[in-house]
Amino acid sequence: MNTATAEHVEVRVDSARQIEERLNAAVKELQPLAASARHGILVTRLNPGHYTISLSEDVPFGLTRERTR
């Protein structure tokens, strides 16, 4: 399941097989907005199977970074 706002996508997965596919789709969804805002994209693992993907001023434009909270 993915939920989205203008600058944020939340991804929840039930299996390891879904992680890469859904995270890649969420990053791709935010790329046009990141380009227009000149921001990078931050992928944050909140819990097993629960991630947020968001625009970030702390990530250089054109890059995607990951972190675990």
Rank of each mutant, 00 (worst) to 15 (best):
48 P>L: 07
57 E>T: 11
21 E>D: 14
66 E>Y: 14
35 A>G: 13
61 F>R: 09
27 V>W: 02
43 V>L: 02
35 A>E: 15
18 Q>G: 06
47 N>P: 06
23 L>V: 04
19 I>T: 14
24 N>L: 11
59 V>K: 03
53 I>R: 01
17 R>Q: 15
33 L>V: 14
9 V>N: 05
24 N>S: 11
33 L>A: 14
11 V>H: 02
68 T>N: 06
18 Q>C: 04
50 H>Y: 09
28 K>Y: 07
18 Q>W: 05
1 M>T: 09
44 T>G: 01
40 G>V: 01
29 E>N: 12
21 E>I: 11
67 R>C: 08
28 K>N: 09
65 R>M: 13
68 T>H: 05
13 V>W: 02
26 A>K: 01
53 I>H: 02
37 A>G: 05
23 L>K: 00
52 T>Q: 06
46 L>D: 06
57 E>Y: 06
3 T>Y: 12
16 A>R: 12
61 F>N: 09
50 H>R: 13
35 A>Q: 14
59 V>C: 04
10 E>C: 11
5 T>Y: 07
64 T>K: 00
13 V>K: 01
66 E>Q: 10
47 N>L: 15
69 R>S: 14
22 R>E: 10
11 V>M: 05
40 G>L: 00
47 N>W: 13
27 V>L: 02
66 E>T: 09
17 R>N: 11
12 R>T: 15
39 H>F: 13
55 L>K: 01
6 A>L: 06
52 T>G: 04
62 G>P: 02
39 H>Y: 13
36 S>I: 11
64 T>V: 10
12 R>F: 10
17 R>L: 12
49 G>E: 03
43 V>F: 00
54 S>V: 07
43 V>S: 00
7 E>P: 04
11 V>W: 01
42 L>I: 02
10 E>V: 13
9 V>S: 05
52 T>I: 09
46 L>A: 06
25 A>P: 01
45 R>K: 10
42 L>W: 04
41 I>P: 00
56 S>Y: 00
47 N>F: 15
17 R>T: 13
9 V>F: 04
6 A>H: 06
25 A>C: 04
58 D>E: 13
58 D>H: 11
6 A>P: 00
64 T>H: 00
10 E>W: 08
68 T>G: 02
39 H>T: 10
42 L>E: 07
43 V>R: 00
16 A>H: 10
37 A>L: 08
53 I>E: 01
6 A>D: 08
37 A>F: 08
35 A>W: 12
53 I>K: 01
28 K>W: 05
26 A>Y: 00
40 G>M: 00
15 S>L: 04
